[in-house]
């Protein structure tokens, strides 16, 4: 339940003197440098904790909000096999959300607080989910490109310095790569289908390619939190490094599908040993981040509506649990 207050609070430590503080920070950084995982009960700088809560809650929210575009196609899935695959995938995502919320709660912020921040717009989620799922092909494209980009990020995060987050990522990556293969396999079926199916595939990739590249965040030169996060090993690779890895892995897959990625500047650079790609539309990126994407309002409104519609149910469950407890005491 959202109202769960039984989370583990971090151990209260008396305010250290500035000298002690410096020593604690030194020990902390030493652990990070030695690749020793930081665990919930250990001392950590307030900013480290805050950065992690921000990043992990954003990640959990993304899993949960990400259920919306895919949920848009469950009832319209074109075969029963595809319908159950999609249902199972969405269910996995709910599970990831729960798992990451729990990991984030080890840092002393409750799920209820995180949900409230999502609903009031204080906390963000991945901007990709502010784009609509307009065709059946999107169910494949989201698996292939969106989950593909997410995995690129998450493989790096599985080496993150915070123990619970790192362990969550290891588990989640396994399921995500399964989703990515399923998405790609869906697109392969379209690529071998009728002209209309091929068009559906190309049109979907046209819409999702650039937003997928945006999932890695701003260029390194414009990424304000990056340096500190790298030092703390919350982040293990830079935005641009990860984006390049994703592009390099994805282009051959696109060729195999027989589609064109919508970037005239995309070409192999022999000298760099990487694909060059065009400039991302950072104005669009900024707009979507700041609430002006095609589905921002709808996504949060849906979440809020489900939450509010369910209030009486959660109250009933709490009242019932209390009655049972009183009976036991009596």
């Amino acid at each position: 339940m959202y109202g769960d207050t039984s989370i583990q609070k971090p151990i209260e430590i008396a305010e250290p003197t500035s000298e002690e503080q410096a020593r604690l920070e030194e020990i902390f950084q030493q652990k990070i440098d030695d690749n020793i995982k930081i665990e919930p009960q250990e001392w950590m700088p307030a900013a480290y904790r805050k950065t992690l809560v921000r990043q992990m809650s954003q990640h959990a929210h993304s899993e949960v909000i990400g259920m919306q575009p895919e949920g848009n196609w469950i009832t319209r899935a074109p075969s029963l096999r595809r319908k159950v695959i999609l249902l199972a995938k969405i269910q996995d995502e709910g599970g990831h959300g729960l798992y990451i919320y729990s990991s984030a709660e080890t840092l002393g912020t409750s799920r209820a607080e995180m949900i409230e921040q999502l609903q009031t717009g204080k906390a963000k989620y991945s901007s990709i989910f502010n784009y609509p799922a307009l065709s059946w092909a999107d169910m494949g494209t989201i698996g292939w490109l969106v989950d593909g980009a997410a995995i690129t990020n998450q493989v790096a995060l599985s080496r993150c310095s915070y123990g619970p987050y790192s362990r969550a990522m290891i588990r989640i990556c396994k399921e995500e790569s399964f989703h990515q293969r399923q998405g790609y396999e869906l697109l392969l079926s379209l690529s071998r289908g009728t002209d209309e199916q091929k068009e559906m595939l190309q049109e979907s990739v046209n819409r999702f390619w650039w937003p997928s590249l945006m999932m890695f965040g701003p260029n390194d030169s414009d990424s304000p939190h990056s340096a500190q996060s790298m030092k703390w090993k919350i982040k293990r690779k830079s935005n641009d490094q990860l984006r390049q890895e994703f592009v390099d892995a994805t282009v051959p897959q696109a060729e195999f599908l027989g589609i064109t990625l919508p970037d005239p500047d995309l070409k192999w650079n022999e000298e760099r040993g990487h694909y060059d790609y065009g400039e991302i539309d950072w104005e669009e990126f900024g707009n979507v981040i700041n609430g002006n994407g095609p589905c921002n309002k709808q996504r949060v409104a849906n979440h809020l509506k489900a939450h509010e519609d369910g209030a009486w149910v959660r109250e009933a469950a709490a009242a019932y649990a209390e009655k049972q407890q009183n009976k036991q005491v009596a």
Binding site: M67, G71, L87, I90, G94, G97, L98, H303, A306
Partner: peptide, 21 residues
């Protein structure tokens, strides 16, 4: 399956998705 992203909590939603499956 129509309950996807509409249930009172994620746990309840997942239980219904499970039934649907």
């Amino acid at each position: 399956s129509e309950w996807c992203f509409r249930a009172p909590s994620i746990e309840m939603e997942m239980a219904l998705m499970n039934c649907a499956l």
